[in-house]
Design a protein around this nucleic acid. Structure first.
Lengths: 121, 121
DNA sequence: GTTCGTAGTAACCAAATGGATAGCAATTCG
DNA sequence: CGAATTGCTATCCATTTGGTTACTACGAAC
């Protein structure tokens, strides 16, 4: 989501934050837990994410100021992640998304069914 | 955005609707215009989109019930696209996204700058 | 000495996404 | 005859994204 149709479509910046395959999921877990969560714990809670993708997602979120990372040196290593206050401000956005899903998700599904039926006909 | 962390994160369905490289842009143009817009007109208003991607995006939107397509047969062909009422219901969602961008976009940018500065240091 | 646990990274691969270019169908206009 | 118009599709290629597996460092515990 970069440039927009002449006059600016004002949602560009958010899109890049919210949309990776796992971005919302990680934020969701972090938010649900509230406190600090370790890497391994995140892996356990998101069983289908690979370590590579998890660490990549976390670094993105960290760069965008949405999660904080605390590294306690020692052996074995220990790193904790937590949602920042800035991440908290996204709640209305997620709410709007969730509300819409609840209210209109069914219409989308039936539109798809209709379309697919016509296609195969 | 498919499965979610054990308990369901409720924004899955929307994500797939709103996030293609051009999805929001097309919807934006269609909404701004209000009326029916022809394929070529869309191309003109979105100078950087290729015809392949535009037609793909439109078919997606049509399948999801967010745009209607009217084909007037004849030569040369004539096809008009218009946002559906369902697309109108997305307005609060886009508003939430835009509001957040306006309110917190700057914080993200400075978080990024901070992060990048530390990285290169 | 071997194994365990932690938080990753490295190397490599597969699929999806996006983009550039060319062309077609069919009629009208010069 | 040849060009122009319109809404695409076909082909091919580049980039991005996601995924899998293996591996490391380092001390502690067995």
């Amino acid at each position: 989501m970069t440039g927009i149709a002449g006059d600016a479509c004002p949602i560009g910046p958010v899109m890049e934050l919210l949309f990776g395959r796992w971005t919302a999921d990680v934020l969701w877990v972090l938010d649900q837990d509230g406190g600090r969560v370790r890497f391994g714990e995140l892996q356990r809670r998101l069983p289908d994410i690979s370590p590579k993708v998890l660490s990549h997602t976390l670094r993105q979120l960290e760069r965008n100021g949405l999660v904080g990372r605390t590294h306690h040196p020692g052996v074995p290593p220990r790193v904790e992640y937590a949602a920042t206050p800035l991440a908290g401000t996204l709640i209305p956005v997620y709410d709007a998304l969730a509300d819409w899903s609840r209210a209109h998700g069914g219409e989308v599904l039936s539109a798809q069914a209709r379309y697919d039926a016509e296609e195969s006909a």
